[in-house]
Amino acid sequence: MQTTPSVAICIPTFNQAQYLPMSVGSACQQTYQNIEVWVSDDASTDETPHVMTQLCQQFPQVSYYRQPQNLGIVGNNNWLLSQPKAEFIIRLDSDDLLMPNYVERLVNLLECYPDAGYAHAAVQEINEYGDKQGIRQLARTEEFRKAETELRAAVSGFRMAANVAMFRSDALRKLSFYEGRPEYTEDYDLIVRMADAGYGNVYTNEVLACYRVWTDASTVRPRRKSLELQGMIRIYEESLLPAFQRRGWDTQIITQKRRQLALIHSAFCYRPLFTEAERNELIELVKKLGDSPALQFRLLTLRWGLSPFFEWRYSTELKLKRLVKAFFNRLNKL
Rank of each mutant, 00 (worst) to 15 (best):
Y270C: 07
Y118K: 08
N127R: 02
D216H: 12
N78G: 01
E237G: 00
D189F: 09
V207Q: 07
Q30A: 13
M232K: 12
L318D: 00
Q57W: 01
L320G: 02
Q296R: 09
P21G: 07
Q58N: 03
Q256M: 02
E128S: 13
R91S: 15
G231Q: 02
S44R: 04
Y65D: 09
V155E: 07
F59P: 05
I73Q: 14
Y129I: 09
A267R: 05
G200D: 07
N127L: 07
R136V: 03
Q83T: 12
D216K: 12
V51K: 02
D46Y: 06
A139T: 04
M1V: 11
L190M: 13
L334V: 13
N205L: 04
L334W: 14
W79H: 13
I191V: 15
R258F: 01
S239H: 08
M194C: 10
E148R: 09
R223I: 09
I126V: 14
S176P: 02
Y199H: 08
W38Y: 15
V286R: 04
P272N: 12
W312V: 02
E104Y: 02
G157L: 03
I9R: 06
Y211T: 05
E206T: 09
S44Y: 04
S94V: 02
C210H: 14
Q230K: 15
Y188M: 01
L81I: 07
W38P: 04
E179K: 13
F14T: 03
P21N: 07
L172S: 14
Q260R: 10
R223G: 03
F158C: 06
S266W: 00
A195K: 01
S26V: 09
V192H: 06
K132S: 10
E183Y: 07
R223V: 06
T48Q: 04
Q57S: 09
V164K: 03
E278I: 01
L299G: 01
V39K: 06
E148V: 12
E281I: 03
D41G: 00
F14D: 02
L273I: 15
V202C: 15
D96K: 05
T31G: 14
N127Y: 03
P293M: 00
F177Y: 15
M1Y: 05
N332D: 08
E142L: 08
D187L: 08
W79Q: 11
Y113K: 03
I191Q: 14
A43E: 06
F309R: 13
E104K: 08
D115A: 13
F167M: 04
